[in-house]
C-alpha cells in the first residue's frame, strides 16, 4: 500500500519536472536543440546527433520500461515471491552483442562525417583567426586585410544599468565577413592562452592554441549573420569575446574586401598586429 503510493508519487514528480521543462520551452521562443546550421557539414552533424539521440531514446524506453514494469509488478506489497535465478549465459551474451551491433551502426555515419570534416582541400580563401585575451583577430592572408573583432555590447547593459539589446553579448564591432558558397579554410591560433572558435551554425569549434596552428574549413550556403562565442575558458572575460560571422554573396563580399584593402592601406595601424592591446580590452 505505502509503496504503491510512493511509486505513484514518483511518476507524478517526474512528469511534473518534465512538463515544467517542456512548458517553458513551448511558450518562449526557445531553442531546445542543436541548430541545423548553414553548411553541409552542420547538417550532417545535426542528423548524426538526432540519430544517436533517437537510438538512446529507444534503448531508454525499453530498459526503463522493463524496469518500471518490474517495479510495479514485482513488489513485495503485491505478494511477489522472489525468484532465485542469478545468471543466464544466453541473455548475457545477447546483451553484449546487440549493443555492439548498434554501436557499429553509429560508428559508420560518424566516421563518414568526420572524414568529410577533415578534407580541407581546394579552399578558395584562407583566413587566420587569432584568439587574444579577450577578442579575436581576423587576417585575410592573401589580401593583407587584418582587423580585431571586439565585443560591442555596452558596459551599461552588462552592469544592468541599461536595458539589454537583442544581441546582448553576441555582437561585435567588426564581424568576420565570409563569401557564401565558397570553401573557406580557417587557420586558428592564439597569442596568449588557449581559446576556441565556435559558431554553432557552422557545425564545429576548433581550439586556438598559442604557438600552433589548426586548420578547419567551412562553406556557408546561406547569406546571413551567424553568432558564436569563445568556447575554451581563457580567463576573466572568457564570456565576453563573441564571434559574429556575416555571410555575404560573392559579389558583395568582393566589394567589401576591396573597400577594406583601401582602408587598410590608409590606416596602417589597423593592419598592424601591434595595435595596442590593453590586457582585458574591456574592463569589467
Amino acid at each position: 500500500m505505502a509503496t504503491s503510493r510512493i511509486a505513484h508519487g514518483g511518476g507524478i514528480a517526474l512528469g511534473a519536472a518534465l512538463s515544467l521543462a517542456w512548458s517553458v520551452g513551448a511558450h518562449a521562443d526557445l531553442t531546445l536543440n542543436m541548430p541545423q546550421g548553414v553548411t553541409a557539414i552542420s547538417h550532417d552533424v545535426y542528423h548524426l546527433h538526432m540519430l544517436i539521440f533517437w537510438i538512446c531514446v529507444v534503448i531508454g524506453v525499453v530498459v526503463f520500461g522493463v524496469m518500471f514494469w518490474s517495479i510495479y509488478h514485482h513488489r513485495k506489497s503485491r505478494g511477489a515471491v522472489p525468484a532465485q535465478f542469478h545468471e543466464s549465459t544466453l541473455v548475457e551474451v545477447l546483451w553484449t552483442i546487440v549493443p555492439m551491433m548498434i554501436l557499429i551502426g553509429m560508428a559508420v555515419p560518424a566516421t563518414g562525417t568526420l572524414v568529410r570534416m577533415y578534407d580541407a582541400r581546394d579552399a578558395e580563401l584562407t583566413i587566420k583567426v587569432t584568439g587574444y585575451q579577450w577578442r579575436w583577430q581576423y587576417d585575410y592572408l592573401d589580401d593583407g586585410v587584418k582587423f580585431f573583432s571586439t565585443l560591442s555590447t555596452p558596459q551599461a547593459q552588462i552592469r544592468n544599468l541599461a536595458p539589454k539589446g537583442e544581441h546582448y553579448l553576441l555582437e561585435v564591432d567588426h564581424p568576420l565577413v565570409l563569401p557564401v558558397g565558397k570553401k573557406v579554410r580557417i587557420l586558428t591560433t592564439a597569442a596568449d592562452v588557449i581559446h576556441s572558435w565556435w559558431v554553432p551554425e557552422l557545425g564545429w569549434k576548433k581550439d586556438a592554441i598559442p604557438g600552433f596552428i589548426n586548420e578547419v574549413w567551412t562553406q556557408i550556403e546561406k547569406p546571413g549573420i551567424y553568432r558564436g562565442q569563445c568556447a575554451e575558458l581563457c580567463g576573466r572575460d572568457h564570456g565576453f569575446m563573441p564571434i559574429v560571422v556575416k555571410a555575404l554573396p560573392e559579389a558583395e563580399f568582393r566589394q567589401w574586401l576591396e573597400q577594406m584593402k583601401k582602408d587598410s592601406t590608409s590606416q596602417t595601424a589597423q593592419n598592424d598586429s601591434r595595435a595596442p592591446i590593453v590586457p582585458g580590452g574591456q574592463t569589467l
Binding site: T126, T130, Y132, L141, G211, I213, R274
Partner: peptide, 21 residues
C-alpha cells in the same frame, strides 16, 4: 605552401612573411 606569421602577446615586433604563398 602558405606562410603565416604570428606574434605572441606582448612581443613588440614586426613579423611578416616575404610572400604569402
Amino acid at each position: 605552401v602558405e606562410f603565416v606569421a604570428s606574434l605572441n602577446l606582448g612581443a613588440p615586433w614586426e613579423f611578416a612573411p616575404q610572400v604569402t604563398r
